[in-house]
Design a protein around this nucleic acid. Sequence first.
DNA 1: TCCTATGTTCAACGCTTATTGAACTATCGA
DNA 2: TCGATAGTTCAATAAGCGTTGAACATAGGA
Lengths: 125, 125
Amino acid sequence: MSRTPHHPTREQIELPTVLDCLSDPIRLAIVYQLAQQERVSSELCCGDFSALAGKSNLAYHFAKLRECGLMLTRVAGTNRFMRLRREDLDARFPGLLNAVINSAARDAGRLQPLFECETVGAEGS
Amino acid sequence: MSRTPHHPTREQIELPTVLDCLSDPIRLAIVYQLAQQERVSSELCCGDFSALAGKSNLAYHFAKLRECGLMLTRVAGTNRFMRLRREDLDARFPGLLNAVINSAARDAGRLQPLFECETVGAEGS
DNA sequence: TCCTATGTTCAACGCTTATTGAACTATCGA
DNA sequence: TCGATAGTTCAATAAGCGTTGAACATAGGA
């Protein structure tokens, strides 16, 4: 079995695919939470998103986010740690990710209860 | 029959809906052409997009773009003139529309032959 | 070793979407 | 008035999407 799941190269990242991925409220919430986590410069693992959907449903959305080039998955033991592909996205589509995240932040209230579950602050070793 | 088709108010424009609308290559091409046309400060009508798809299919995509708040339709005789809702979009999601259009411009080559049909320069009255 | 926790994969379902052609509506010009 | 033009609406089709639970794989700890 593949140790590390498949990721597209920077050049393989496509605009319509990225926009389609971001148009789902659950995936938008995942990206939003990953963006919050960027400021703490640590990663999140699947379980940290359990408030958003069931396990298998999350795995489905994670795969979509990975395959479209929005995020990166690192396997460590039984955990999968994830972070945004900030550099690649900014290189391919300058300003896009920030515009989306800022827009999501503005609308956090109206974007479901999905955005109210603050997950920042995991890892309390 | 309604003289003017339905448009959402500025406050009714939703981020996931807008992103979903932009994720379709044909609709992205329509928005892109409308953005080009902005610089000439004139409008385009349905027929100007006939290279992108058939008439009824275009009507479907126009309705989607209108209902999600991306564009505005003005009825004039048998024509429907359309333009981007630039002000409303910039107010709701600052930087988003420009980021998408710039990204589309960068990828114009790889985004189908849809982006090669330059339609600018209509209205030669 | 066995048990548990983490996460993926699979098949199934119901729903939405894009696309098509045909029929229809409405306006303009001769 | 008649015909042509511009665009919408409708019904039908095929393909794709999100969600679910059950089964599976893998790693870590007792």
